[in-house]
Amino acid sequence: MLGSIRSRLAPIAVLAILVLLITPVIAGSAFWLDNSVIVAIFSLLALSVGMAYGQAGILSMAPAAFGAIGAFATSIVTARYGVSPLIGLVLALLLPAVLAYPMARAITRLSPLPLSIATLLLSLVLELAIREGGSFTGGYIGISGIPSLWFAESIFAMHVLSWCLVVAVLVLYANLTESAIGRAVKTARHDPLRATADGVNVPALLACYFAISASVAGLAGWLYAHHLTYMGPDSLTMHVSIKIVLMAVIGGASTLLGPILGAAFLTLLTLYLPAAETQGMIFGIVLIFVLLVAPNGVFGTDWKKLLMKRATQKSAAVRTVATGEGAA
């Protein structure tokens, strides 16, 4: 029991130590602290993809949309009605889940392919709703003057808070993955029929898991809104979604730390990339490349095995031809 807890929390401890080591180095620089908060926010968004795609096999093309729902929920109540950001936090956690559950329930009766199309639809409708929302969502102008968090006024406090949230989410996520529910989700992903035979209500379970992942994205949106103090129709769009999916896939969607590695890598890479227009090209190519070379990501791939396979590729190729059509 103790051993399982230790192995489960080991990667999180590694992350916590890394953050503790990095903190004194960047503490003096507002630029790097700002980027560190951004990395933390995108880590949460990528973790949401990791949960849905890596664990449950549901490809959401709209993590940024769920983040935007959380961000707009808190922006509207705090900036317009002067409510405490903590109420905003509750809304940011609840609203995405409330939206995601029935959506997943209606669609995923087991087949994840239509659901990914549905998330694409959601993304399009939401972007439209934000633009046309008039004074409620700020329309094209967006909402500015979102209050920063009173308990994390300075950028350094924000850095600490956001990484604490990442670690907290990771601990909960690790527990969930190891629990009976997590195992049921894995079974349901690989063999829904088997899971049903084992007494798992697959559609309800997957929808629930999807809702939880949307909630994590909503949390990220809450941080995003209070960190940047501005939310507009171009803040969390589908282009951000592809970036987030890419983060999760690069690092390893089914692993704990993979999405965080991906988030850190891509955020830092974006700092040195040319204009925003060409970013989509680079992200698209990187995504395809990663899918082709190591579809399980950096942390999810058994590199030793992969390299061994490359060495014996010729004999493997012969076998592939022989069995290829059968597996199709």
Binding site: L59, M61, I242, V245, M281, G284, I285, L292
Partner: peptide
Amino acid sequence: VLGTFGLAMFLESF
């Protein structure tokens, strides 16, 4: 599907 999504993004940006 994810692969085609990546290519769609590439084409759009292109």
